[in-house]
Design a protein around this nucleic acid. Structure first.
Lengths: 113, 113
DNA sequence: CAGTATCCCTGTAGATACTG
DNA sequence: CAGTATCTACAGGGATACTG
């Protein structure tokens, strides 16, 4: 986005890009789930336990959406179907630079109101 | 399980940073309003006109919250109180690196589902 | 012009109980 | 273990009309 005063096609496209990205990382629980997975939790119950206040309902829903969005993979053991492993995709990991930039921003600029 | 794979303090802090940042840039209209302001719209009606589908109600509400969060300034001409100018703060502009990273991500990685 | 005030609908998410 | 099902409460937000 330029700081020029012009409403160009490019600006509009950039706006759509931002909205696309927000759509992917948005939501009350999504980033918490990603962090939980990064921290080594792969099982449904472990993820649930690692995130205070989350309900099964919301975890289910989020994991399902994240799977649809190719952010996580869900692998059920064929022999014991109750053994399910969740994992972050490489695609999801491409979000790291954004998250890192967000951490940097909050660290340096965020003033609590 | 999660008792042994505990999040580090640092991870938890980073998670909070991310949530703080999301809180600031979140919302259906907020980024659109920022872009409108960058594009040179300073008046309430101009902003409203530049953002398709936004209602007065939502624009009011967002601008008020953004003012509380020091993202915009609201300046009413003392002599003609119906002359109001909105502007982005420098604080708001510190968000640009994040937005730019988000644009970059969507451009290179986003796959539409 | 720069907003408010109301009314109302819908989606989000919490609590709780239940299932294969 | 890995989830679903149901019921409910509430906030977000659209439509419309109105105000200083």
């Amino acid at each position: 986005m330029s700081t020029e005063i012009a409403c160009t096609e490019k600006d509009q496209q950039n706006m759509k890009y931002i909205q696309d990205t927000l759509y992917v990382i948005n939501g009350k629980w999504r980033i918490l789930i990603m962090v939980s997975l990064v921290n080594g939790n792969t099982r449904y119950r472990d993820i649930a336990r690692s995130i205070p206040k989350i309900t099964f309902r919301m975890l289910s829903k989020e994991l399902r959406e994240m799977e649809l969005n190719k952010l996580v993979t869900r692998t059920a053991d064929e022999l014991s179907p109750m053994q399910v492993e969740y994992a972050l995709t490489d695609y999801c990991k491409t979000l790291w630079p954004i998250l890192s930039e967000m951490i940097k921003w909050a660290k340096h600029h965020r003033t609590v109101i």
